[in-house]
């Protein structure tokens, strides 16, 4: 049944598949409320079971088992389904700003600007993809390189300013904790730039004295003090992630989202 079809006949099959989906949808609407949660739990379990079994099931000499060939189609399906979800965001953004324009709420002009930017880059991108020529490429680059890339890197770089004001304000020797925070930050900062490294480059590059070079103290802090601390946090988060996965997989989770009547 699942064989590629050549020529215009494929459209017949596609329409057939959509009609079949409609039938499945109708059948789903017939499911009474009390069976809905078990159905969802079952689907979650089966989807998880696929990857879990593929991992746990003993493998043959070529390191595959009976589920391994399905990893690739599952991957492609996940890609495509994930892509369809984008429309949710587009829908809500568009509806909020359309409403603001329709009611001429204060600042509705900015919503117009938003739409102009949205259509400009989406249309020029698609044009460039389907009719690649210098004209289309330039228009797309104008919005992508001149606009989006510049805005993105600017907003990120703004953190540099905020980090200065945060460091200036927070790094005071007010409490034990603040003092500890300050001192390790101070040494790490000194050790990571050439000018700071120059302060101790009169120390020998080899032997015991080299340990006192500021870049080596920094590396020591990062590898010997920072890493076990981060590792300890990681272990905790890892156990949390495993527990989370189990609660989700086995539908043990409770709380407003999971308890609601369906």
């Amino acid at each position: 049944m699942f064989r590629p079809v050549q020529g215009p006949a494929v459209w017949g099959y596609i329409i057939g598949a959509l009609v079949a989906s409609g039938v499945i949808f109708f059948l789903l609407t017939l499911i009474p409320g009390r069976f809905r949660k078990p159905l969802i739990a079952l689907i979650t379990f089966l989807a998880g079971l696929f990857y879990a079994l593929e991992f746990f099931w003993p493998t043959g000499r070529d390191d595959t088992n009976f589920l391994t060939p399905f990893i690739d189609p599952a991957g492609q399906m996940a890609q495509v389904l994930q892509a369809f979800a984008l429309g949710l965001g587009v829908y809500s953004l568009v509806s909020v700003h359309l409403r603001s324009i329709a009611r001429q709420r204060s600042g509705w002009g900015f919503s117009v600007v938003l739409f102009a930017a949205l259509f400009a880059i989406a249309i020029s991108g698609l044009l460039n993809a389907y009719r690649p020529n210098r004209y289309n490429q330039n228009v797309f680059n104008f919005f992508f390189v001149g606009g989006l890339q510049a805005l993105d890197s600017t907003m990120f770089s703004i953190i540099a300013f905020y980090i200065v004001s945060a460091a200036y304000r927070a790094f005071r020797i007010r409490s034990v904790e603040a003092t500890i925070l300050l001192s390790s930050a101070f040494i790490v900062m000194l050790g990571q730039v050439a000018l700071g490294q120059a302060l101790t480059n009169w120390l020998p590059a080899e032997g015991f004295g080299a340990n006192l070079r500021v870049e080596n103290i920094r590396t020591w802090i990062l590898t010997r003090v920072n890493s076990p601390a981060v590792l300890a946090v990681d272990f905790g988060l890892g156990m949390g992630a495993l527990a989370t996965a189990l609660r989700l997989w086995l539908s043990l989770e409770r709380g407003s989202y999971f308890d609601r009547e369906l």
Binding site: A160, L182, F186, M189, V193, A194, L195, G196
Partner: peptide, 24 residues
């Protein structure tokens, strides 16, 4: 960029020292 990196770091270090000394 390495030079700018160095001077920016020294600015922050100086500000931290300044903030603490004036606080004390």
């Amino acid at each position: 960029g390495s030079a700018s990196l160095s001077y920016a770091h020294f600015l922050i270090l100086a500000l931290i020292i300044l903030g603490n000394v004036s606080m004390l």
